[in-house]
Amino acid sequence: MMNEQTIPPVHQPPDPKNWVAMYADYLFAYTITRIQDEEQARDLVQETFLAGLQGLQKYAGKSSERTWLTGILKNKIIDVYRKKSSGLKTQEINTADGEVLDFFNGTDGHWKQEHRPQNFGLNDFDPLANKELNQVLQRCMRKLPALWLSVFTMKHMDDEETDVVCAELRISSANFWVIIHRAKLNLRACLQKNWM
């Protein structure tokens, strides 16, 4: 039995009763921008709170409650990425080209006429002020193959080290660069197509 008085005073006692009110929307938004699947995002938020409850003793009050919960959530999101992408890797990289389009001529590597970048005003928009553009962007992200989206968001949204992304998703660094390149080509093309 644990004697309450021996527990060292924590800087900031956890307050799970208020978690839903304080953090549920934040954690949900955090998840949805990364996995683009509402149903799964809800599940992850729920799992995060439950894992948090079970790990209450581990919360030392060193970081804010929100940071701590976000850390738990982040690991769960990586698990999802991993599950979605395992086994599909080579297949996706090979077949996606056929489906998703090849933007360049096979012989000389020039842009194909119909895929050439055009000025569609992207750089004039203030993304903070432009909700619609953000929505188009998210729709375009959702079209990417799961593994590509995972690599892309871990790198560009979460600023993870390349080594970490490769290790977590179990891909080679050569594949990492191929994916980063193709994901961006497809995103850009999708924005151009849907925003012009």
Partner: peptide
């Protein structure tokens, strides 16, 4: 064309980075 690509690609990085910070945070709710 690739010069334009450079600009657009950077802009997309910027947009992705601030997706979460944007007003989305206020519109997406459980």
């Amino acid at each position: 064309m690739c010069k334009l690509y450079v600009k657009q690609s950077r802009k997309i990085n910027e947009m992705v980075k601030q997706l979460l910070k944007s007003d989305m945070r206020h519109t997406i709710r459980l």
